[in-house]
């Protein structure tokens, strides 16, 4: 197997510090379509088990939920802009 010479993952670089606006997901409206995950340029949204997370209906609780990793999210706003349910809100960091 060919492996990269550079040993340290860029995960060492916490780009979340760049952020001025912070995306916050309202899971009670989130239909788990994973569109936000698909379009995040920073790979800062992970898919996790969400069986006990609030949901708009019982059907979607079986699916993964998108969880934003604020260590890396730069706050570009793509996820909020593309979410079909408009359930991601961009909030000022200070709030």
């Amino acid at each position: 197997m060919l492996v990269p010479l550079a040993e340290t993952s860029s995960r060492a670089n916490h780009t979340g510090l760049w952020r001025t606006l912070k995306p916050v997901i309202d899971y009670s409206s989130c239909i788990r379509c994973e569109i936000c995950w698909k379009f995040c340029p920073d790979n800062a949204i992970n898919l996790e088990d969400g069986r006990t997370t609030p949901a708009p209906n019982q059907k979607v609780t079986a699916f993964s939920i998108p969880v934003i990793d604020y260590d890396y999210c730069k706050g570009c706003g793509i996820c909020a802009n593309e979410c079909p349910e408009k359930c991601i809100e961009m909030k000022f960091e200070e709030e």
Binding site: S10, R11, N13, T15, R32, P41, N43, F63, C76, G77
Partner: peptide
């Protein structure tokens, strides 16, 4: 929901592209 594109990620977070880089 099953994802519409492969789940495997070979690009890690923490890179230095601008916000919203295509």
């Amino acid at each position: 929901m099953p994802t519409s594109i492969p789940e495997q990620e070979l690009m890690e977070p923490g890179h230095t592209a601008c916000q919203g880089c295509g």
